[in-house]
């Protein structure tokens, strides 16, 4: 009897030990898998890609007013990343290319919405500077958004100023990238303004092409607290 109890105890211990070892080994495998994934895949936040639906998000404008992306539901939305401290951004704005783009866009689609976003930490902390910058250059947008935390910028993976994003009336991102195909960083206008190109194609019911280009300009320097 004593012997059988001892055997049962030993067997139970062995089973427990085996199970624990197996679980630990499995965890190690998972950790290794995780590490491998971290090495080879993008571990950053979910980013909206061309062809994907843009989720609703909150925005705060230069006056501190909060609004929702869904407020523009049913309309085509153009988002442009701006930075009053970026010479390339200032170049296209000062040169009248942005106001021309807005005017040309309204001629194609009177309901198109323009949202100017500043995610650059160094200048986003002064909303008035962004407002003044846009007003000085006669840029009239539906919203002038301050994104000091970088949440919106990172969602769109905005890397430069300027960079533009076109979202169709169904909420799908249909273009991301450069403002135009300027060969000299916007000092002289390119032959094709990609926003106007996209709006023209949307109006004609065509697929937007190109739907992704490489933007040029200053880097969006996000707030460090968001960098993880």
């Amino acid at each position: 009897m004593k012997h059988s109890r001892l055997t049962a105890l030993l067997t139970g211990s062995a089973l427990l030990f085996g199970a624990a070892t197996f679980a630990m080994a499995d965890d190690t495998k998972k950790d290794k898998k995780h590490d491998k994934a971290a090495d080879t895949t993008d571990t950053k936040e979910k980013r909206v890609k061309v062809g994907e639906q843009v989720p609703n998000f909150s925005m705060t404008d230069v006056n501190g007013k909060t609004m929702q992306f869904s407020d523009f539901s049913g309309k085509t939305v153009v988002m442009e990343w701006v930075n009053p401290g970026c010479p390339v951004c200032v170049g296209v704005t000062k040169g009248g290319l942005v106001t021309k783009m807005i005017a040309d866009a309204k001629a194609i689609d009177p309901n198109v919405v323009f949202v100017m976003v500043n995610s650059t930490a160094a200048t986003a902390n002064d909303p008035k500077a962004t407002a003044t910058y846009l007003a000085e250059h006669k840029v009239v947008a539906n919203a002038e958004v301050i994104d000091g935390s970088g949440v919106i910028g990172k969602m769109f993976d905005a890397k430069t100023t300027p960079a533009v994003y076109v979202i169709d009336s169904k909420g799908t991102l249909v273009y991301s990238g450069a403002f135009d195909d300027s060969s000299d960083r916007g000092s002289t206008p390119g032959k094709t303004n990609y926003v106007i190109n996209a709006l023209t194609q949307l109006k004609a019911g065509e697929k937007v092409s190109p739907d992704k280009t490489k933007s040029y300009g200053c880097g969006v320097k996000y707030a460090k607290s968001q960098n993880g």
């Binding site: 970026c86 390339v88 170049g91 160094a122 000299d184 200053c218 880097g219």
Partner: peptide, 12 residues
Amino acid sequence: LSWMVCKENCEI
């Protein structure tokens, strides 16, 4: 020549 030169900010 023209160029962009950057640190925390950029200049042309």
